[in-house]
C-alpha cells in the first residue's frame, strides 16, 4: 500500500475516486440481471436447437438438408423473401423521398397507414388478403379468370411477406433523408444534374448505409415470416412450403425423422438470421460514422 502511494505521482482523495468511479454496485447488479435475462430468453433456446439438431451427428442433418422437400422450401423462401425485399426496397426509397421532400395533402395519413400492416397480427394480414384476392374475394375471381392465381400460390405469399415488412426500409431511410436536407441536391441541380442524376449521384449515396440496414432488416423479417404466409400458402410440401412452414409442419408430425427435419431447418433459419445480424452490426458503425 505504501509502495503504491509513493509510485502514484499525486494521490487523489478517496472521495474523489469514489465519485469518479463509474461502475457502482448498482451497475453490477443491473448487468447481472440483464445478462441472466438474455441468457434465459435467447441463448438457452438457441443452444438447445443446436444441440437437438446435431444430437445424432452430421449425417442425418446432411440427409435432411439435401432432401427434395427441404431444398424446395429453401428455394421458395429465397424467391419469396428476395422479391418481397426488392419490392420493399424500391417502395421504401421512393416513398421515403416522397414523404421527406414533398408536402402533399394526406401525407401524414399515408405515413401512418404504411405502419399498419406491421402493427396488426400477420394472421389477420393473411385472412385479409384471402378476403380480397381469394377465389370468392373482391378481385380473386376476376384474376383467376384471367389465369392469374394469387392465393395458394407464390404471388400471394410474396404479397403477404411484403405487407408484414412494408415499412422496414422506409423507416430507416426517412431519418437519414431528413438529416441530409435538400441542399446537396440543390447544389447538384445548380451544377447541372438532372433529377435522375441527382438521385443516383447524391441521394442514393447519402442514404446507402441506412438503406443497407433497412434491406437487411427487411430480409430477416421476410425469411422468418410464418403467420401471414401460412394463411395464404396452403403449405403443400415441395410446392408452397417455405422454410418456416417446413419447420412447423415437420415438427407437428410424429416420429424422430420428422423432428430431425424440423430441427435441421430451424438451424438453417437461425444461421441465416445470425449472418444477417452480423451484417447489420457491421453496418451500424458505418452509418454512425457517415
Amino acid at each position: 500500500m505504501v509502495d503504491v502511494r509513493t509510485v502514484a505521482p499525486a494521490p487523489v482523495d478517496a472521495r474523489v475516486r469514489r465519485a469518479r468511479r463509474r461502475t457502482t454496485r448498482t451497475a453490477w447488479v443491473l448487468r447481472l440481471v440483464a445478462i441472466g435475462y438474455v441468457l434465459a430468453l435467447v441463448a438457452l433456446p438457441v443452444a438447445s436447437v443446436v444441440q437437438h439438431t446435431f444430437a445424432d451427428g452430421l449425417g442425418p442433418v446432411w440427409e435432411v438438408l439435401t432432401s427434395d422437400d427441404f431444398l424446395a422450401a429453401l428455394r421458395l423462401t429465397a424467391v419469396v423473401a428476395g422479391i418481397a425485399t426488392l419490392l420493399n426496397t424500391v417502395f421504401g426509397v421512393g416513398m421515403g423521398v416522397l414523404l421527406v421532400r414533398y408536402r402533399f395533402w394526406g401525407r401524414r395519413f399515408v405515413s401512418a397507414v404504411i405502419d399498419l400492416p406491421v402493427s396488426i397480427s400477420p394472421i389477420v394480414v393473411g385472412v385479409a388478403l384471402i378476403l380480397v384476392y381469394g377465389t370468392y374475394g373482391w378481385f380473386g375471381g376476376a384474376l383467376e379468370d384471367a389465369g392469374f392465381r394469387v392465393i395458394f400460390s407464390v404471388p400471394g405469399m410474396v404479397l403477404a411477406t411484403v405487407l408484414v415488412s412494408l415499412p422496414l426500409v422506409l423507416r430507416e431511410v426517412v431519418p437519414t433523408l431528413e438529416e441530409a436536407g435538400i441542399e446537396q441536391e440543390q447544389a447538384a441541380q445548380s451544377l447541372g444534374a438532372s433529377a435522375w442524376q441527382r438521385f443516383w449521384r447524391v441521394t442514393l449515396p447519402t442514404i446507402r448505409w441506412a438503406l443497407a440496414y433497412g434491406v437487411a432488416l427487411s430480409l430477416a423479417r421476410s425469411l422468418g415470416e410464418f403467420g401471414a404466409v401460412r394463411v395464404v400458402s396452403g403449405s403443400v410440401a415441395g410446392e408452397s412450403q417455405t422454410l418456416t412452414l417446413y419447420v412447423n409442419d415437420s415438427y407437428q408430425e410424429f416420429g424422430p425423422d420428422a423432428q430431425r427435419q424440423a430441427f435441421a431447418a430451424a438451424f438453417v433459419l437461425m444461421a441465416i438470421a445470425v449472418a444477417l445480424i452480423v451484417v447489420i452490426a457491421a453496418l451500424r458503425p458505418q452509418e454512425e460514422r457517415s
Binding site: 441530409a180 441542399e183 446537396q184 440543390q186 447544389a187 447538384a188 445548380s190 451544377l191 447524391v202 449515396p205 447519402t206 446507402r208 457517415s290
Partner: peptide, 13 residues
C-alpha cells in the same frame, strides 16, 4: 449559375 450555400452543401460521400 454557380451557387454557394451558407452550410456548404458538400457532397459528404
Amino acid at each position: 449559375v454557380g451557387f454557394v450555400f451558407q452550410h456548404y452543401a458538400a457532397f459528404k460521400h
